[in-house]
């Protein structure tokens, strides 16, 4: 069985990647191959990495408050590159009121602090399975 591949990326300028690393580790322990980009990536860099790595999904973590511009930008750039089959989910300190707008912009799910890791793992598994069908 080919493992699911996920790019975990930190767009924008905040330097806090504890959450991204915890999620990356949970996905690894669920048998997935997780590519971690490191801090302060531009949406362009993230999209290039996602395509080069041929991932199934991109997980974005943002704690700076810039999610409303950065997350949709990644979705849009993937689409422009013909890679809209790569699905995007996000997490971080994101106000509830911003979530509907992000979902509308094509982000598949947004996980805020306190989300059980199992929920994220199951979400990734299910999303990739659906994409294959």
């Amino acid at each position: 069985m080919v493992p699911i591949r996920v790019l975990v990326a930190k767009p924008g300028l905040d330097g806090h990647d504890r959450g991204a690393k915890v999620v990356a580790r949970a996905l690894r322990d669920a048998g997935m191959e997780v590519i971690y980009t490191g801090l302060r990536q531009s949406p362009e860099q993230i999209v290039r990495a996602a395509i080069q790595e041929d991932v199934d999904m991109v997980g974005l973590s943002c704690l700076s408050g810039a999610h409303n511009s950065l997350f949709p930008k990644v979705v849009q750039l993937l689409k422009e590159a013909g890679a809209e089959d790569i699905q995007v989910f996000g997490g971080g300190v994101i106000p509830e009121s911003d979530i509907p707008g992000l979902l509308e912009a094509g982000v598949r799910a947004v996980f805020t602090p306190g989300t059980p890791l199992e929920e994220i793992v199951n979400f990734v598994r299910e999303s990739v399975k659906k994409g294959d069908a």
Partner: peptide
Amino acid sequence: SGGAILGDRIRMSALSANPNVYIRS
């Protein structure tokens, strides 16, 4: 688990926008 954290890319993040470079983990 068969899973993996592939982190080598972190040391090359400045190169990921370079059109001459392809990186695969």
